[in-house]
Design a protein around this nucleic acid. Sequence first.
DNA 1: ATTACTGCAAAGCCTTTGCATGTTC
DNA 2: GAACATGCAAAGGCTTTGCAGTAAT
Lengths: 151, 151
Amino acid sequence: MESRIERIKKQLHGASYKLTPQREATVMVLLENEEDHLSAEDVFLLVKERAPEIGLATVYRTLELLTELKIVDKINFGDGVARYDLRQEGATRFHHHLICIECGSVDEIQEDLLGEVEKIVETRFQFTVKDHWLTFHGICKRCKQKENKKK
Amino acid sequence: MESRIERIKKQLHGASYKLTPQREATVMVLLENEEDHLSAEDVFLLVKERAPEIGLATVYRTLELLTELKIVDKINFGDGVARYDLRQEGATRFHHHLICIECGSVDEIQEDLLGEVEKIVETRFQFTVKDHWLTFHGICKRCKQKENKKK
DNA sequence: ATTACTGCAAAGCCTTTGCATGTTC
DNA sequence: GAACATGCAAAGGCTTTGCAGTAAT
């Protein structure tokens, strides 16, 4: 069984890029923190632990490259910082996010809930959908439980 | 019949803010360009035409204020610039956007297509939805027509 | 008078770029 | 050795902040 990193390596080679040690370290950090939504700075600090010589610019360049190849998605939750999120292998659409306005947590919904909505958009607005970005703002499960305990 | 600007004035007063000439000019620009997605700089240039003394910082502060009061929504389409979009009166949810990857146009869908999806999110993920952000990327009606004409 | 608001310029922050050095095939 | 990739520092672009002056109650 081929590993995820090997498949990413092939993807890079296919686009005539190399998987340098710095790029590999960056990808590893993303794989190990798949649940998180790391900023370039976050990634940089984590990559430094395994490749101390790396520069911030290289991290930015690598993240840009991975975004271009659709290996990661670049998102902005409105705080002025770009965050990077690994795309599920083979996914044609970006997954959805749940942002809690109480605790700031960001959860993911991997399942695509927009199938029907996209059909409406395609027919009613004659817009051919290639991808989507969907984020909900509200109160997460954990914060609601906390609220209930107080009562 | 009360005008939109008067209602916004009352909203400001209700939150103990004043509708100064600068703020009024800014709101007027937003009302007159309701279809667009103006950046702070865009707003600044347009406001200057009717209030030449205004400073960019005041525009930023006004837009922040209007965002806080939910009169406008601040959005980021991924180009590193914040854009400001008037919220429909009485709307509890932000409207959807269609971004064309060919021509860069941004269209709006005022109708809320997420009713059913929100129900799923609420029950399956126990997340109480307060608002949502939905953007589609794809090819707009106009670009598709252009493509067809070529053939 | 006190409080809110403005304009200007400076500072801040995130991100990109230029360039010399290093690496790879 | 030609093309690509890196690290550092500098530059860039958008946004916020400090502060002195102005307006409003």
